[in-house]
Simulated assay, not measured.
Amino acid sequence: MRETSWDIDCVIIGVNCEKTIERCLRSILASSYPGHLLHIYYCDGGSTDSSIAIARRFAQVRVFELNAEYPTPGAGRNQGWKNSSSPFVQFLDSDTILDSLWLSKAAEAMNDNRIGAVFGLRQEIHPERSVYNWIGNLEWNGPAGESDCFGGDVCIRRSALEKTDGYDETLVGGEDPELSRRIIRAGWHLIRLNAPMTMHDLAMTTVKQYMRRSFRSGYAYGAVRSREAAVKSSFWKYDFQKIVIKSGGFFCSTALSLLLMLSPLPVIVKIAALFLPLIGLSLLLSPRLFKVEKFMQEHHLNNKEAKIYGWHCSMVVLPQFFGIIRFYVGKLFNKPLKNKRRNLKTALSTAGS
């Protein structure tokens, strides 16, 4: 690997992340990248626990306290890169662990001036501890090469951030792909390397957590798709339509069946109406019914694992559908979804692990 001499700013964001922030910071300090070229910034969104105190223990870390009433990931990330000056900025979430070799690989890739952002593989630390962690581990990564978007762990060229003015601070979800699209339209390429970048702990163990995360992902689909449609982009068009058609078809067929059953229509019509929910249900469950073999091949799963993943792909669109509705209702009445600091907390899959 060619020697690099680029300064890199590492910007970490978090809120109430006392269980993970020290681990994240230590992983950066343990990087094989030359220490004198690393500059670390922790941007806290308004923690009420000991997150800030922990970060301040590290002399190498500059801490920003945003104290926003409604924190967003974009606000924290913008605070970090706009108060630093290195040519590359590595963004991280506080619940990640940086691979020791990643920054060298990212800097090497960035020698190509056409690349606006580079990112690698994110892996779950404990995919075995819950089915939700396992699903997250399956979905974090895509094929190596040019990509149409990146996630929260990414190394971005400063000039790309300056040209696009960085992250959208109003978004509570989808801020990473939204910025990705603007960087591409500004003329840069996004590259995924087949190399470890970060370890992550989703720490999702309950249905409630799963539903909340899926609802927010639906909101993100709505927010980003709305922006992309405005510039005639097809990004996330298929994903958006899939959620709306499957969930909408299921709910509409069920509602229509009930209406027909309660109406003064001939018995034969009412009998036919009984089959409408089955049509909607088959549409909703199409991944579980028809794509098990595909999941086995694409994700290298056994039959049982592919069926579990099929259930996820079938059911996740329901909370996502309501997330999309929430976005458009909020847009109509100028009431966007907002983060409440008291509800933001970074956990571990197992306390003390």
Rank of each mutant, 00 (worst) to 15 (best):
M1C: 15
S5P: 00
W6A: 15
D7M: 13
I8P: 07
C10W: 10
V11C: 12
I12S: 01
I12F: 07
I13A: 06
E22S: 13
E22N: 05
E22I: 09
G35Y: 10
G35T: 13
H36I: 13
H36Y: 14
H39M: 13
C43H: 00
G45T: 06
D49R: 08
S50G: 11
S51K: 01
I52M: 09
A53V: 13
I54G: 08
I54S: 04
R57W: 14
F58Y: 13
L66F: 07
N67A: 08
E69H: 00
Y70E: 01
P71Q: 02
T72W: 06
G74D: 03
N78G: 01
W81G: 07
W81T: 09
K82P: 02
K82D: 11
N83T: 14
V89T: 12
F91E: 10
D95R: 03
D95S: 05
L98Q: 13
L101Y: 07
L101D: 14
L101A: 10
W102H: 02
K105H: 05
K105I: 03
N111H: 15
V118Y: 12
V118R: 07
F119Y: 15
F119V: 08
F119N: 11
L121T: 05
E124D: 15
I125S: 12
H126V: 03
P127I: 02
R129D: 02
Y132E: 01
N133S: 10
G136K: 11
N141P: 09
G142Q: 09
E146Y: 15
S147K: 15
D148V: 10
D148W: 12
F150I: 03
D153A: 15
V154Q: 04
I156S: 04
R158T: 08
R158D: 05
D165S: 14
T170F: 00
L171W: 00
V172C: 10
G173P: 05
E175R: 01
I184Y: 06
L190V: 13
R192V: 03
T198Y: 05
M199H: 06
L202V: 05
A203G: 09
T206Y: 04
T206P: 04
Y210T: 11
R216T: 01
S217G: 00
F235W: 08
F235M: 04
Q241K: 09
Q241E: 13
Q241P: 01
K242L: 04
G248S: 08
G249V: 02
F251G: 04
F251S: 06
C252Y: 04
S253H: 11
T254P: 09
L256K: 08
P264R: 01
L265Q: 12
V269Y: 13
V269R: 10
A272Q: 13
L274Y: 13
P277T: 05
L278K: 10
G280L: 00
L281R: 02
S282E: 03
L284T: 02
S286W: 11
L289E: 13
F290Q: 00
M296E: 11
H299D: 12
L301M: 10
N302E: 12
N303C: 14
N303M: 15
E305F: 07
E305H: 04
E305P: 05
E305T: 11
A306Y: 08
K307A: 00
K307I: 08
I308G: 10
H312L: 05
C313W: 13
S314C: 03
Q320M: 14
F322H: 10
F327Q: 04
G330I: 03
G330H: 04
G330A: 06
L332V: 00
P336W: 09
L337W: 00
N339V: 04
K340M: 11
K340C: 04
L344P: 05
A347R: 10
A351N: 08
